[in-house]
Design a protein around this nucleic acid. Structure first.
Length: 585
RNA sequence: GCACCGGUAGCUCAAUUGGAUAGAGCUUCUGACUUCGGAUCAGAAGGUUGCAGGUUCAAGUCCUGCCCGGUGUACCA
């Protein structure tokens, strides 16, 4: 990796001259524009500022000590103190040659691998998975794959909603209103119907609500009948989860739902009470502000009528039940004790950012030592909107089920494939449609900055040109086809880059590692999407401008190496995003 | 009321978190082609980054104040 090689030498040169400089601030990254070379660093301006030096002077002193001559042309100092690095042709050709014959120069393995617990997807038992789960599941899966690719240890845990007040209502419904036949044919729909029916009754009738509460209490007390029904509901739900995760290509190392922590909840509350962190309030147990933060930053204070009033986190309700703050605290505690992770990441809707701020804050007070060792991060994301700018719904106003959405994506893709490739047989077309349809959905979801809302559009995501999965997948098939047709083995071949399109493609291929690191570090799969779309475009331009199989040597070998590597990186990149490729489309 | 997240080309979105002349795609217009699979490529047009100040070598990004939109605001998760 050139950028890290240059970076470490730059660090050495700077610290020799300015011992006080923080090495972490000295960074090299791909140049923002080709005319500035291939890599740039703006760090000297920061160092100079901190040390009250003249940045241009510092730059020329550093450059005098910096030997990168076997990699780069002479280093250029630009503007107020930018360093511009331009790779030599030989260095680039050597890299391409190494990469093309399979040397590990594409992806930098982490020097100090970290253990990361990844909490994502988290659907509820007895409810259908819906569009909302695409984001958490897709982003979570992409993160899982990116971190693993970089050599980190990832523990993915699906924290399903299998415990809680909804089961009181579900139990009432199950015992009184269950339609066995309906349960047989579509268990999720039937359980949803039960819940909705009883929920409506409870709104109108307090006696009904009390009945639901009684059933919940019995369940929590271990009543055999209620436990058996509860387990059956989980089993039926797990079938749904497995089917959908199978289609989405998602895997979890663990599925430790809320119920897993049930036995710990009481002691969590006791511990917080004993430590003086929680106290009784209106019959509930609550954690109040400790006034160590300014009111504006304090998650447990809110301003009403000009006064800061307490909004505590509840960890035990006045009826003795626990809520999700309690469960989440027990979960953090368990994960840290069990896996000793460096980080725990929660891939959850941005609307819960307040909850996580509170959670992390309470945990910090409860276990300050563990909190210092483990970074807790909420990886939030925005909503999916319909073309009217409102939350994405079906025409009748219901939430869109994930299964229906995936079906429709495949169906729409099939129409396109049938139109484009009538020559293929139906089963082949269906398989291509599956790969393209699911890829399109995932790409659309991963492409925007995860924090912003995005508008769901069938037409745009399945469009054949533009920043879409089909476009990138198609460029893969073209590259892979050339490699197949060449019949050439993966042996070392002479490399001689001459054409601008070849050079631009080679340089972009080189930046995969940097992009992956940035995407993983900031939990932004969209960096990888944009990188791949750019790569697909550069490949296509190259393919247009430079004949491969018809070319004379050494251009033929060079271009073949570029095709091979482009195919490899496109495939690897897409698969890292959880998107499959196909050889024909 | 308060807090959080947004406001960038006609449209949908980026901008590697303070870097150099704000980039893509769509749309529109112009061009290439009996192709190593055209689901292609080349080019053009499109901007006072919501408004007004401030910080510094440098601001879409940070600070202050406004204006819009969304979300959240103790016994649901």
């Amino acid at each position: 990796m050139f950028h890290s090689a240059i970076e470490s030498r730059l660090r050495a040169a700077v610290s020799a001259l300015v011992p006080t400089a923080d090495p972490a601030t000295i960074q090299v990254k791909p140049a923002s524009e080709a005319r500035f070379g291939d890599f740039q660093s703006n760090s000297l301006m920061l160092v100079a500022k901190a040390a009250r030096m003249n940045p241009r002077q510092l730059a020329s002193d550093v450059v005098a000590r910096l030997d990168v001559s076997e990699l780069c042309e002479p280093v250029e100092i630009a503007g107020p103190g930018f360093l511009n690095f331009r790779l030599t042709r030989q260095a680039l050709e050597q890299w391409l040659s190494d990469a093309a014959c399979g040397k590990p120069v594409l992806i930098p393995k982490a020097e100090t691998p970290r253990t990361v617990v990844l909490d994502f997807s988290s659907p509820n038992v007895a409810k259908p998975m819906h569009v909302g789960h695409i984001r958490s599941t897709g982003i979570g899966e992409a993160l899982q794959r990116m971190w693993r690719l970089l050599g980190h240890r990832v523990i993915s845990d699906n924290h399903i909603g299998d415990w809680g007040t909804q089961f009181g209502k579900l139990l009432v419904g199950w015992k009184e209103l269950l339609d066995r036949q309906a349960l047989e044919s579509d268990p999720i729909a039937e359980m949803e119907r039960l819940y909705k029916t009883v929920n409506t009754q409870c709104d109108a009738d307090p006696a009904r609500l009390e009945m639901a509460r009684q059933e919940l209490v019995r369940l929590q007390a271990g009543d055999p009948e209620n436990l058996a029904i509860w387990k059956e509901m989980i089993r039926l739900s797990q079938v749904q989860f497995d089917t959908l995760y199978g289609r989405m290509g998602t895997r979890f190392d663990h599925t430790l739902g809320e119920s897993f922590y049930n036995a710990e909840l009481g002691s969590v509350v006791e511990a917080l009470l004993a430590a003086g962190i929680a106290r009784l309030s209106d019959g509930a147990v609550a954690v109040f502000s400790d006034r160590t933060l300014s009111p504006k930053e304090d998650p447990f204070l809110v301003s009403r009528d000009g006064e800061w009033v307490d909004v505590p986190a509840l960890i035990r309700k006045s009826d003795g039940g626990f809520n999700y703050m309690t469960t989440d605290l027990a979960t953090v505690d368990y994960r840290i004790r069990t896996w000793a992770p460096d980080e725990i990441l929660y891939v959850v809707d941005d609307r819960q950012s307040g909850h996580f701020r509170g959670l992390f804050h309470v945990f910090a007070r409860w276990q300050p030592e563990a909190y210092r060792k483990t970074q807790l991060r909420h990886i939030g994301f925005g909503k999916i909107l319909g073309e009217d700018g409102k939350p994405f719904k079906t025409r009748s106003g219901d939430t869109v089920r994930l299964a229906d959405l995936l079906d429709e994506a495949e169906e729409r893709a099939l129409q396109v494939v049938t139109e484009k490739r009538p020559d293929l047989d139906p089963s082949e077309r269906r398989e291509i449609a599956r790969i393209v349809g699911l890829g399109a959905v995932k790409w659309q979801d991963l492409l925007p900055n995860r924090q912003s809302d995005y508008v769901f559009s069938w037409d745009k995501m399945l469009a054949l040109q533009g920043n879409t999965a089909p476009y990138v997948q198609y460029q893969y098939t073209r590259a892979a086809k050339v490699v197949r047709d060449s019949g050439a083995p993966t042996a070392a071949q002479p490399i001689a880059l001459t054409e601008p399109a070849e050079i631009a493609l080679a340089k972009h291929l080189m930046n995969l590692g940097f992009t992956l690191q940035a995407a993983a570090e900031e939990c932004r799969p969209n960096y990888l999407c944009n990188y791949l779309h750019e790569l697909a475009g550069l490949y296509s331009s190259f393919y247009e401008a430079c004949p491969v199989l018809k070319a004379e040597e050494p251009a033929r070998s060079t271009r073949l190496a570029l095709c091979r590597l482009s195919a490899q990186v496109l495939r690897l990149g897409l698969e890292t995003l959880g998107i499959e490729v196909t050889e024909k489309m």
